[in-house]
């Protein structure tokens, strides 16, 4: 199930030290997510934890960005369409140096640059304001079109939730990406299987996500969304795929890395207490050792 539908063996692989580095970054993302949401007393840890490896691999291996010059015109761009995973996005941005790591603990507080959902006006490194689901892919298409018009090497990445695919605009945008042959665009679906009201399959059955995208004309890959090697390989394959956009259906576990949160619907939009967060951090650190 979890293989590329084209031969992956030809794309460059990560070196062992890079794999270690990315796992460490993902681990730190998880720690930041837990501490920031605990400090805020609200937020969305479940879907932040499920996207840790995707974000870490994009920001620390795949994307061409310059935190010292966030407006560099040739940079790659990332849109967090599932905006409620803001704690994870803020974590990679801080780790990358867009703003101090200490600022992560101001998440959701009055006067903070780290709004409850991403705001490009407030936060360095945030490329699009998101939070109202279903809108990120359209904006990513716009960025990809602009890059093409200007002849820039920019690649655009967008992360969608699986429940988010219930929004009709996603499929309007999916048609645009294909119609415009946006091969400089790569979408990820964080397929953790849960949304606020329950399992995605119960809320509105979303069987055969990959087949749906394929039917829309996308190049579709299906991977383990916690495997940094697979994430990197998928991005490389997307780069090599011409004439159509690529979507990576990333099978993930909601709450991944925190045993009491894994696959528990309630942790979609509930913050851990400080004690729970520290217990979770201990587990994550033990696992790393």
């Amino acid at each position: 199930m979890l293989g590329c539908d084209v031969h992956c063996c030809q794309v460059p692989a990560l070196a062992e030290d890079e794999v270690r580095m990315l796992k460490e970054r993902a681990r730190r993302v998880r720690v930041h997510v837990l501490r920031a949401t605990a400090e805020a007393g609200s937020g969305h840890p479940g879907g932040s934890l499920s996207s840790a490896e995707i974000l870490a691999t994009l920001y620390f291996k795949v994307m061409r960005i310059n935190p010292k010059d966030p407006g560099w015109p040739d940079r790659d761009r990332f849109v967090l369409s599932k905006g409620h995973a803001a704690p994870a996005l803020y974590a990679v941005l801080a780790e990358a140096g867009f703003f101090p790591v200490e600022e992560l603990l101001t998440l959701r507080k009055f006067g903070s640059r780290l709004q409850g959902h991403p705001s490009m006006k407030h936060t360095p490194g945030v490329e699009m304001s998101t939070g109202s689901l279903g809108q990120g892919l359209s904006t990513a298409n716009g960025m990809a079109l602009a890059a093409r018009l200007d002849g820039r090497p920019t690649r655009v990445y967008v992360l969608l939730g699986d429940g988010e695919l219930e929004e009709g605009q996603v499929w309007e945008a999916a048609m645009t990406s294909v119609h415009r042959k946006l091969d400089n665009l790569t979408a990820f679906v964080d397929y953790n299987g849960l949304q606020i009201d329950g399992p995605v399959t119960d809320v509105k059955s979303l069987d055969n996500i990959a087949a749906r995208w394929r039917a829309f004309g996308w190049h579709v890959l299906e991977i383990d969304g916690h495997d940094v090697r697979a994430i990197f390989a998928a991005c490389e394959e997307a780069k090599a795929t011409k004439g159509k956009p690529t979507v990576v259906v990333a099978h993930t576990v909601k709450g991944r890395g925190v045993p009491f949160m894994e696959n528990v619907v309630d942790w979609h939009g509930k913050a851990p207490s400080r004690d729970q967060a520290e217990e979770a951090v201990r587990r994550i650190e033990q696992e790393a050792e």
Partner: peptide, 28 residues
């Protein structure tokens, strides 16, 4: 023709695409 984008019957997508173009320096 290169600077015109026919978005089809999809107004929501059109506004989002315009936002992305504007975020990249265009005046849509």
């Amino acid at each position: 023709p290169d600077r015109f984008f026919e978005m089809g019957i999809a107004e929501a997508d059109m506004m989002g695409t315009a936002a992305g173009l504007a975020a990249s320096g265009k005046i849509p």
